[in-house]
Nucleic acid binder design. Sequence first.
DNA 1: CTTCATTGATTGACTGATCAATCAATGAAG
DNA 2: CTTCATTGATTGATCAGTCAATCAATGAAG
Lengths: 195, 195
Amino acid sequence: MARSDIEGVRREALIQAAIGAIEVEGSLDVTMAAIARRASVSPALAHHYFGGKDDLMIAAMRHLLKEFRAGVTARLRAAETPRQRVGAIVAGCFAPGQFTAETIAAWLVFYLNARRSPEAARLLAVYFRRLESNLVAALSPLTGRGAARDIAAAAGAMIDGVWLRQALTPKHAPDAAAAIGAVERFVDAEIARCA
Amino acid sequence: MARSDIEGVRREALIQAAIGAIEVEGSLDVTMAAIARRASVSPALAHHYFGGKDDLMIAAMRHLLKEFRAGVTARLRAAETPRQRVGAIVAGCFAPGQFTAETIAAWLVFYLNARRSPEAARLLAVYFRRLESNLVAALSPLTGRGAARDIAAAAGAMIDGVWLRQALTPKHAPDAAAAIGAVERFVDAEIARCA
DNA sequence: CTTCATTGATTGACTGATCAATCAATGAAG
DNA sequence: CTTCATTGATTGATCAGTCAATCAATGAAG
């Protein structure tokens, strides 16, 4: 492997290890040693590349955010009608990579962390704003701008709620189809109310 | 103060202090020293009454659960029609004591903790089961048992989602009326679908 | 093709701080 | 005098972060 690639590989491995450790532990209270062990490097190396634990956590969060956004935008590009665009966003929220108990637990951890870390709060705010403005844009042609805002807020809450419940019932495998169905039914009902 | 009351007073104070500390910190990673300081006692006393940190956390969680349940059952007793019973449950979820950013943060912390603590998971499971069965019982006369189950699950998810969003936007004070309105609109629409 | 200096990767050992938990001692109420 | 509440001091463990020292790859000079 070319030497210039090593840094990228290590950073990636450490970020994945951090997310994995957070998922398993259900808390940001994971040791650098545990993360480093997962990435098969020494704890010192994690500090070498990320400076400190906080920076690694922010990097891990940014990674999750980026993955999520990529899934949504890919689905949005394939959509043609406004209603399909709404469906694309909903489906993106329950994509196989996103809708697992472990990933959701990691999201929750980051949510809570945002209460303490301004940087984490800023990242999450950007994510929420993008998701909501995507939804509003997709809904506006169907319901008008004002109603679109209300529906987007409610649908967003419902999506988060389904996520949350899923994270807490590790007995059942996440049922993405049922989740999407519930949210879509809600959206359809709300659109009908505006027609 | 009678000597026999002291223990109860201290336990109560320590539980409240624990919840307060968790709310502020947004994590179970609060020190016994910080909790004890909030309760104006020494750290050693907290251990004396609760045995260990885990036990104190479980006690705090149990306390939150009990408060929540008391609010819902009080509202349920005042309801007369099935639809009113549904409304009572929804309103109970957004009661002033429950629907604050700090309390919600504490709930989230306990949620995540349930991934690690079997006792916490058991307590949460009881809470979920009760809430859902209350909802199903209230909805069944209106929609039939099968549909009631589906609607209860979706409404529960929506309630949790509204909670979650609220915990993450500490800028806005929680708007209980809007939250109740959104959930009730959803429930009404779902009931209408079954009529 | 060698040699060797440079640079980045990597680590083990260490440190200072923090924290849960313990315990023996104190003191007040009955 | 007995019992229980209460605490200060202490301990052992854990962890983030540091540092000086190796190791390995690259490339330039001869």
